[in-house]
Each structure stands twice: as C-alpha cells, then as structure tokens.
Amino acid sequence: MKAAAFAYTRPAALADALRAAGRDARFVAGSQSLGPMLNLRLAEPPALVDVRRLPELRGARVEGGRLHLGAAVTHAEIEDGAVPDTTHGMLPAVARGIAYRAVRNRGTLGGSLAHADPAADWVNAMTVLGARCHIAGPDGRRVLPVHEFLQGTYRTALGPGELLVEVELPAFSERMRWGYYKVAAKVGEFASAIGAAVHDPALAMTHLLVGAIEARPLLLPPFAGALELAGDAAIEAFGARIAAALPQADAVFVHQHATALARAVARLRAEGAA
C-alpha cells in the first residue's frame, strides 16, 4: 500500500517546527513506526513535519551527572557510543537489541517513546531508568516522568502539536547496576516479554520492571531480597507478583515475564560481581 497524500515540511529550527505543525500535523523522525502506518493507511495525517535534523533534538550532553539525549538521536548512535553513556553500558546494550541494524540506523529514541508500543525497548528501558521527558509545544515546555509520559498502548501524554524533544536520565552513581532481558520468538522481533532491573544505592533506586504487557510497563514494588533471588525461586516469586498485578494474564504470559525479570536480575547481579 501507498500512503495517502500529505504535505511535508522540514523546518530548520524547533520553533519553526512547532509553528508548522499546528495542532493537526504529525511529527516524523526516523519513520520506522509511522512510515509503515502511513503506508498501511492506518494513519492519514494531513501534514508531516520532519524533525529528524532539528539541532534541538540532536544534542547529547551530561550536565551534573544527568544525561540528556535529544529525541532524534538514533538507536545506532546509542549502540555505537556516538553519544555519552552514564548507565554503565545499559543504553548501548539495549540499543543493540532493537530490531535490525537497518531499523536502528533510522529509528530514533524519541520516535520510539512517542509511538509508545509497549513492547518497544526504549519504552521499557527508559521507564526502568526513571527517565524524564522534555516536551515542547504550542503552549510552552513541560517535563514529565516517563511513567507519566507513557499512558498506555500507543498512548502518551503528548497533546496536539506537542513534541518530545529530549530525554533526561538521573545522575547515576558508580554503584549503579542494571539488567535487561527480552524474550522474543526470534532476533529482531518485538518482545513477547521484557524484564529489567536497575539498582543504584546512591539514589536509593531499585526498579523492577515487567514490560511488553499491552499497557505501559509495570514497575513492581521492590521487596526485600528481590535482587538476591535466582533460578526457579526467582521465577516463582516474580511470577506470583506479576499474576497479582495482572489478573488477566495466563500461565505462559506470567512465566515468560517472570523469567525475563529473573534473568534481568541475574544479569544485574553478575554485573555487580564483575
């Protein structure tokens, strides 16, 4: 299928882009999600505003230990270390597991978050990292925690004409540790289950994430000994909590997600030992 007709502009600056978009246009960057939707005519916006090259969306810097990544930074740039990393390797590792290299060359961090597919890697990785989303729009700028930015399957807090411009991570300490595990039928596919864990004693942060659940990611309330669990005991303990939080989930769903989280925790622990 071919896309329905649309107007296309590529403004040079953020202010121009916001003005050009008005309230009806869609922003487009890497086009790895929107492109297929346009071609399938699942989306028929009257106009596209290309923000792929906006300087305001292409930056990457560390300020006060906090990493700021522009929304149009590509998966490949994160994978390749072309932008700074304050997560002890988590961001490049997650990037490396996204789809295929051809997708990573074009797809962007912000595009992935704004598309809000529950099985997408950045949706889950940024949630477990406790990222904040910087939004610009016709009524000015605002900042939301990613867990509020994401509202559900393909739903975000972005209003008409609003654009995600930057993602900001907490100032992780040297003692920050992470684990991320994806269950997928094959390499490059969207995950059927994602488990992720981040622990930073300096920030008093212990995040246990259950992702790819057809809703925004689930952060399990931390519990004593969670990071020490291993093997079948870990799957059982996490499974019980997942089943309680997601009562509609069947046994396979719970087991895959519990396994993903157990393996993420195991990786976090292995990293700490290394």
């Binding site: 269950v183 039928a185 059927s192 046994a251 396979v252 087991h255 895959q256």
Partner: peptide, 12 residues
Amino acid sequence: LTPRRLLAAVLA
C-alpha cells in the same frame, strides 16, 4: 512449534 505452544505444554 511456537514458544507459546511449547511453554504451555511444559508448564502444564
């Protein structure tokens, strides 16, 4: 033999 079919049987 999808992961789902396999896992459902093994779990049962």
